[in-house]
Amino acid sequence: MVSVSIRIGTRKSTMALAQTDDIARRLSIAAPELNVEIIKFETTGDNDQTSKLLIHGGKGGAFVAGIRAAVTSGKLHAAMHSLKDMPGNEDTPGLVIGAMLARDPPTDALVVRQGISIEDIKCSRGKGYKIGTNAVRRAAYARRLFPEIEVIHFRGAADTRIRKLDNRDMQKLPNGGEAGPADALIMARSGLERVGLANRIAMEFSPKDMLPAVGQGIVAVECAAGDWRTRQYLSLIDDRAAHLCGDAEREVLWILNGHCNSPVAGYSKIDGARMLLTASVLDDAGNGIIEVTRSGPADRPRELGRAVGLELLDKGAAEIIARTRPGP
């Protein structure tokens, strides 16, 4: 058997490495002749865990751009990304998503520090408590669910954030100040499971209460559009249902022309030959929300995503997005 090598780039975080190890395992099973080499990258977003992601060009600039450049230059055959971190434009010149893995649970969860009960937070409507998150979507939903909560800027890898929570560390702010300590964090359930910390979940939010981020729970593998050998190998681990859902949700982002400071959410699921897609746009205070649900043929995901996105625009989503767009 002739050995074939493939180099996959990834971030150095515990969760990113776990996701990439999963890709390597799946490829090794599907193509035993394949030798998968994992190349670790320190991204801008990993090196700077204080600033808002906006100054780095959002999640795309902070976590994706550097690894993408290595694929484009030929240093890598492929790159691992969490789909929710990828820029919302539908296609990137010269690159394609060769595979999306079967979707992990897409929901968000609340992690609380020792000595605090989730019932205390619920009963007080959040008054006197601080919830940490860097996601504007999570912050907006948190303010809707707990109207008197204080949301604080909180960044870092999943295991690092929980360590900061338990140690009652103050969080450095982009303006040089500090906030905290946090009493709870909102995090992705799938991320907590990847790093072995699912036991810390105090409350899981249903999609009805907190609609997930577009692509949340889906691991994507990107490669050069003209690299047909790599595309063929990646097709062996591609999950059709996840890919269809990812395409539908990302089409909503494409239509809305959102930015990294826009509280946009979207989640789809397939039932037989049909797909149900729900997407929403919230103002950053969580006071106003526009939500649209539509169904359509599962094998035409972008048409469904386009219809949902256009209906959101008809209902005023553009105005909300414009208000959250950063100034010059």
Rank of each mutant, 00 (worst) to 15 (best):
P174E: 14
L197M: 11
G288A: 12
I55F: 07
P106D: 12
G156Y: 01
K127Y: 03
G156K: 05
P263S: 02
E222L: 04
A213Y: 07
L276R: 09
G215P: 04
E222R: 03
G176C: 08
K172S: 14
G98D: 02
R25N: 10
E303T: 11
N35E: 00
R194N: 15
N89D: 15
R26H: 10
V221C: 01
Y141K: 07
T20K: 05
G246D: 09
V111R: 08
A78N: 03
A198V: 10
V36Q: 00
T107W: 12
E291S: 14
D104R: 15
T72N: 01
A31I: 14
A24S: 15
L282A: 10
L110N: 08
W254F: 15
I29F: 15
L236R: 15
P301A: 05
G258P: 09
P297C: 08
T10E: 03
R325M: 13
N287Q: 12
L110A: 13
P106I: 11
G305S: 09
G45K: 04
A220R: 00
Y233C: 03
E193Y: 12
C260H: 06
P32E: 07
Q232C: 10
G61H: 10
G94I: 01
P212C: 13
G88C: 03
L310V: 08
T92L: 10
R143Y: 05
G180N: 03
M187I: 11
R143N: 09
A142M: 07
R155S: 09
A135E: 10
